[in-house]
Nucleic acid binder design. Structure first.
Length: 313
RNA sequence: GCCGAGUUAGCUCAGUUGGUAGAGCACGCGACUGAAAAUCGCGGUGUCCACAGUUCGAUUCUGUGACUCGGCA
């Protein structure tokens, strides 16, 4: 397949609370598009307020994919996302519509636009636990040395103090008999990605985050978490490691006050924004960046039209 | 007015038996291939309240002053 034959994929990236949701719905309306969400926390039903998931009204009739597709105890991940996103994008193309990949989970978006070949080994929680227990005895660094002995290339890319990633690499090697570094590949993106980034000054973003969190609390974030627990979902689920949920859980368990929880949510969201920015940098030549402004949607529309025309030449 | 405690990084504070100082948080930055809103890493020069004294040398000791917080009037 040559690059001329590849179909376009509009990709919209940007930090949380920058305004991606309403802008992408606007653009999708103008281009007869559909939206594929690339947001690791919007998969789960019942987690609406804390994830700032778009409401039906905000979607304004634009089909959204990969939102509300799992219960909180079905643990979705990168590989499942990638498979389902490819599928959703292909189906949108088949319908003759334009797909918009929109979201804040940088890793997921990169896996699509860079055509990652993810080591085909689904999580084995028993092995992970065993490896973790082993690390408790010998230390994370010693475990990393074991990895280095059998797969130096993988070990080199993983900090010896990062137990979780060391464990994953060993898990893959043990289960597949193949080096993690060999299974971890990049191919090319099956689509022609057109990347647009939205940004705002940090200070402004932080203000919007604080406001958004106050709104979440007013809209019943605490009740949302309570009802998930009441529905029988274990607080131990990785799903509840989401910002907003972990802190409210601490509050509900009586470990901290609601005020402390609120401060923590704000703080953790700010840290998250900085971490998010690592996936898409201002000097990334693949991305056309926009600062949030009045006529942002018009500007972005113009850019998309031009890029789509270039494709058809 | 008197007595006591305090004044050190944006904030909360530690510390220097006298040789110009360091934690947490904030903030900035980086890594990331089946938990990713996860996980992990890197980044600390600031009139040590001001002035004077002692001293080779004071943020540290002494004196005076300013301010803050308690208590008593």
């Amino acid at each position: 397949m040559t690059s001329e034959q590849k179909k376009p994929l509009i990709v919209i990236v940007g930090p949380t609370a920058v305004g991606k949701t309403s802008i992408s719905v606007n653009l999708a309306q103008r281009f007869d598009g559909e939206i594929v969400s690339a947001d690791s926390r919007s998969f789960y039903r019942g987690m609406d307020i804390g994830t700032a998931k778009p409401t039906l009204e905000e979607m304004r009739g634009i089909p959204h994919h990969l939102i509300n597709v799992a219960d909180p105890d079905e643990i979705w991940n990168l590989a499942i996302f990638q498979r389902r996103a490819y599928q959703a994008i292909d189906e949108i193309h088949d319908r003759g519509k334009l797909p918009f990949l929109v979201g804040g989970t940088g890793q997921y978006i990169r896996s699509i636009i860079e055509g990652w070949r993810i080591p085909p080994q689904k999580p084995d929680y028993n092995i992970r636990e065993a490896l973790t227990l082993w690390a408790d005895r010998i230390g994370a660094e010693a475990l990393h040395e074991r990895l280095e002995a059998i797969d130096p290339a993988a070990a080199e890319k993983i900090d010896y103090r990062n137990l979780r990633r060391t464990v994953r690499a060993l898990e893959v090697i043990l289960k597949t008999g193949t080096r993690f570094s060999e299974l971890r590949q990049k191919q090319t993106c099956p689509y022609h990605p057109i990347l647009l980034g939205i940004d705002r000054p940090r200070e402004e973003l932080y203000e919007r985050i604080d406001e958004r969190i106050e709104t979440m609390l007013a809209e019943g974030l605490v009740q949302e978490v309570e009802s998930l627990i009441r529905a029988g979902f274990s607080p131990e689920l990785p799903t509840f490691s989401a910002i907003g949920y972990q802190e409210i859980l601490q509050y509900l368990q009586g470990n901290i006050s609601l005020e402390e929880a609120t401060l923590l949510i704000k703080r953790n969201t700010r840290i998250f924004v900085r971490r998010q920015a690592n996936w898409f940098k201002p000097d990334d030549p693949r991305i056309t960046w926009f600062q949030a402004s009045e006529n942002l949607v018009d500007q972005m529309e113009t850019t998309i039209r031009r890029r789509l025309n270039d494709l058809n030449k």
